Simulated scan of single mutants.
Amino acid sequence: MAAARSPSTPSSNVLILDGGLGTTLEDVFHRNISTPLWSAKPVDEEPEVIIAVHLAFLDAGADIVLTSTYQCAFNTFDRAGYARADAERIMLESVRLALEARRRFLARGSGNNGARTPPRVAISLGPYGATLYPAQEFDGFYPPPYGPGARDGADKTNAFPLDTDAGRAQEAAAVDALAAFHLERLVVFAGDAEVWGAVDYLAFETVPLVREVRAIRRAVARLYEMKPGLAAKPWWISTVHPDGHSPEKRADARGGWVTATEVAESVLLGDDEDEATPWAFGVNCTALESLPHILKDAGGVAKRFAELHGRQPWLVMHPNRGDVYIPETQSWKGTSREGTPWAKDVGDIGRVALQSGCWEGIVVGGCCKTGPDEIAGLKQHRFIL
């Protein structure tokens, strides 16, 4: 259904995305954001620091900056003690700060800093699991009605048994509940004509479960059904593959992990009229070493997408830097792959993906622990793509 609302295609087939906004706030700007709102915390308290982070990435060469809205959802704001009206205000203000950073970047005479396109802004939308405590974007153990709710013991699972009628019914109800969750946020942004008109992309990030992918596609379709005159935006779903595979493990007789091919199929394929079709398939917050086999499998699905839709999808790839988070000490163990070395490795992987002929173009950037240095490295090594 969304294919009929085909957005304009960027002029370049390589676009540089920014890095990890939250970890850059911590590492470069030395802010404590360890609250339920994460990178949205400074929006009310220190809006200029949010603008400064966006400007740092634009100066480094980013073509696209993500808003500080990843953690923004009404249940997150409620846990942080905010009323609904304040939640909506902060969500919209987060976007306006990114737009203001873009305005300042262009107004100060630096033009587009050598970028192939003027800077663009993407609304960052995290999964339902990012609103939970502890966060569940890497495990996908969602409570009812969003998931089975079993997070402990021998029955620990993040999937319903789809070989039973009861399991299929629970899965369908969970998709509906997750679609309502995502639609609720989309309506806030689409309800402000100035904000919606100024942003360029919608970015659903770190999505761990196939049913949530389906729910997001359903939410986007419902948004345009509710608002038939609404301008369409290119959008993507970035999936997450911790430990090199999907975090979703089947609960039925088949067993095993959901494959990268099945994940890509859930994003790009399917003939459900209630589900919109995204502009791109993405992978984020996943180790570099895991990307080649994930992208190879996804590339096969992209070819099938092109046969069905008469156009190739874009690829969005923004892996983490490789640092390891240590829960016991709430600290990170660093990596020697920073700045230029990281950028070269990312560029090599992106070049292979783009040369496969499966994708129309690539959006490439960073996730956790990647900052302006890593993005500057990508910009510098852009030619290898």
Rank of each mutant, 00 (worst) to 15 (best):
V283T: 10
L308E: 14
G300V: 09
P292R: 13
W279H: 11
W314H: 00
V283I: 15
E275V: 00
K296A: 13
A280Q: 03
D297E: 15
G310M: 07
C285I: 14
G300S: 15
K296Q: 11
S290L: 08
D272A: 01
W314F: 12
D274A: 01
G310I: 06
H293R: 13
H309V: 06
G300M: 15
E273T: 00
A302I: 06
P313I: 03
L308F: 02
G300F: 08
H309I: 07
A298I: 08
K303D: 15
A287P: 05
W314S: 01
S290E: 09
G310H: 06
L295G: 06
D274E: 12
A302L: 04
W279E: 07
R304G: 06
W314G: 03
E307W: 05
G282Y: 01
D274C: 03
R311V: 05
I294C: 08
S290R: 09
L291E: 12
L308M: 08
A306G: 04
D274N: 03
A287N: 13
D274V: 01
I294Y: 09
Q312C: 09
N284K: 04
A306R: 08
A276W: 02
R304D: 09
E289H: 15
R311K: 08
H293V: 15
F305T: 05
L295M: 10
I294G: 06
T286V: 11
V301L: 04
S290D: 13
